[in-house]
Design a protein around this nucleic acid. Structure first.
Lengths: 193, 193
DNA sequence: CGAAATTATTTTAGGCCTAAAATAATTTAG
DNA sequence: CTAAATTATTTTAGGCCTAAAATAATTTCG
């Protein structure tokens, strides 16, 4: 993509992001994004624990189920949450024990386990979701509406860039079909299309 | 903080981000940011494992030590990485076993453990860091320089907003000094000021 | 049909991570 | 000086998470 021509250094100085071996800007960008994500995630985790005695993985899982009236399979949930099937199995076990989720084999295909929120689960989630939405708004209160829109747009482009780079990597390096299938499994996202 | 006055609904409509109960934009923004972070983190994790047989927590810890010529204490590392002391202890144990890190009690204050990279650790980190920087650049290749700069700026504002909201929360709810000290411990960031 | 391949989930082994309690060393106050 | 408080780290108990192997059900195909 970048054809590095040493003789054109002065020209290249104008394109900061394409200096031969220097990608510090991207690295700083990534570290800053990671800092933001971590701060938000830690704060939400703390508040869920303090106010609702629950955890973020449980909340995220319930959020997925809440959006589906007909229930979701273990595999669908694991794709949406970008976690492994085994992890969904484990988190669901806790929610089952607490009576928040129901699990039953699908009638047509008994390999498939269909997960739904129980009435209790729906009620509990509704209360948490309301608070959660408020917390997020609070955390982003320092940004005005145009800034939020702009940030949303730029992160959209980032997402596109990431998917392309990750797909390219999966093709290159001559991965076997089996390996490629495995690697491609968890590429969905947490809540958006 | 927001005194919601039902009678002023029409007025409030002009400030899109402050509509009484609607903070969907912020929520969508957060979910998109989380998706980006997760995609990057998962990809970096996979590449570190495939190419260097190591993990992201180990890489992050070594990155901190590499930036310090005189070594860092367990507490300093845990603050920078935003993880608990106990976690640093555990990750360091693995690095010690592999001969990548050295740990010794400070001479003046024997409570303090000073961590440094060994020669082997520095060499191993150098090789990984070079690749890592390239991976990040690759992942952000779909953004041009102005977009990167703009995104960096907006995330800076986000960080400021987060710190303010988190600090406000810590004050409110009349936390005891002990609790506040605990909560305030891990508020640094991974690599930037 | 029935064996082989595929698909969905669970289990296993092991690393990461936290909060809280425990340990150990230093500092502070009386 | 010395007991109490503070500080730095480690340990403990338990949840999250993954990759890989195992299990179980379905589909494909000869």
């Amino acid at each position: 993509m970048e054809t590095t021509v040493p003789g054109l250094m002065l020209d290249r100085e104008t394109k900061a992001s394409e200096r031969p071996g220097d990608h510090k800007d991207e690295l700083r960008l990534w570290l800053r994004m990671l800092t933001c994500s971590t701060l938000i995630e830690t704060e939400i985790r703390n508040r869920l624990r303090e106010e609702f005695k629950t955890t973020l993985p449980r909340f995220d899982l319930m959020a997925q189920l809440d959006k589906s009236s007909t229930g979701m399979t273990v595999g669908e949930v694991s794709q949406r949450l970008m976690v492994s099937n085994g992890n969904v199995t484990a988190v669901v076990a806790g929610l089952l024990a607490d009576g928040l989720v129901d699990k039953r084999a699908a009638t047509q295909d008994r390999r498939v386990q269909v997960l739904t929120l129980t009435a209790q689960g729906r009620k509990a989630f509704k209360a948490m979701a309301e608070r959660h939405e408020g917390w997020i708004a609070e955390l982003f209160a320092g940004l005005d509406q145009p800034e939020i829109a702009q940030l949303f747009r730029l992160l959209g482009q980032t997402k596109t860039s990431l998917h392309r780079a990750i797909a390219a990597r999966a093709l290159e390096a001559g991965k076997s079909e089996a390996t490629r299938n495995e690697a491609g499994k968890n590429q969905a996202d947490k809540g958006e299309a």
